[in-house]
Amino acid sequence: MSGQPFTGGFRSHLGRARGLGASHHGAGHWLSYRLLSVAYVPLAVWFVISVVRHAGADQAAVAEWLKSPVNATLMLLTVGVTFHHAAYGMQEVFEDYVHGKMAKTVVIGATKALCLLLAVASGVAVLKLALGA
């Protein structure tokens, strides 16, 4: 350690760097996004078929459809994966096109918050129909 300027009080260089970057998280993040994308393929196909079968349907038909535990489960998974994928996909877009640390942080944070809000609200709606409340 000799010869290096001592600027961090009692903290070591490693201690100061920890938590400030994506060290060791990048690969896991990359892989989980891919795995969820793989899961999304059959869900997307199921979702399109379901929506097509309910084109122009009334509320009673949709409520009846989501009463089935299988449909409710698949819909909850679709909602979860959709909003997760949207939040992290938009993060990549903003990281590329929004410059300035503050603007980038705010717009990514706001997108993730909105996606979380919509995911939970959609999930509650599905559960309400599924459980017949």
Binding site: D58, Q59, A60, V62, A63, L66, M75, V79, T82, F83, A86, G89, M90, V93, C115, L118, A121, S122, V124, A125, V126, K128, L129
Partner: peptide
């Protein structure tokens, strides 16, 4: 298309929430 689909999630949420709210909202 990814950005467009993200906008589309708003309609998905609207569709599901309206279905849970009742026949009028869903209509």
């Amino acid at each position: 298309t990814g950005i467009g689909l993200t906008v589309g999630t708003l309609v998905l949420a609207w569709w599901l929430i309206a279905a849970a709210s009742g026949p009028d909202a869903f209509a």
